[in-house]
């Protein structure tokens, strides 16, 4: 599954990236997304639960569902 499908209060681990947009992958990596890191959904916007914010290694990152779909994850604990 990908990060945009993450529902509230679940912690997940990043397994990789899937996007044709190489620049987007670079930006995601530079701001701190990396394989093996844990992400936790923190906040969502009012309309379409978009954008979303995730806790990533102690930092809080805001992104849109569209960007989040480039991040592959697996849920760690239900």
């Amino acid at each position: 599954m990908t990060l945009n499908e993450l529902n509230r209060k679940l912690t997940a681990r990043i397994t990789g990236f899937q996007t044709q947009d190489h620049d987007l992958e670079t930006r995601l990596r530079e701001i701190g997304f990396a394989e093996g890191d844990q992400v936790e959904l923190m906040h969502v916007g009012l309309f379409g639960r978009n954008p979303m914010s995730v806790k990533l290694n102690g930092a809080l990152i805001a992104l849109r569902r569209n960007e989040a779909s480039a991040v592959k994850i697996e849920v760690v604990q239900p």
Partner: peptide
């Protein structure tokens, strides 16, 4: 244009 949002929210 490809508008995206990727923004760190500081403490």
């Amino acid at each position: 244009g490809n508008s995206t949002l990727l923004l760190e929210l500081p403490s």
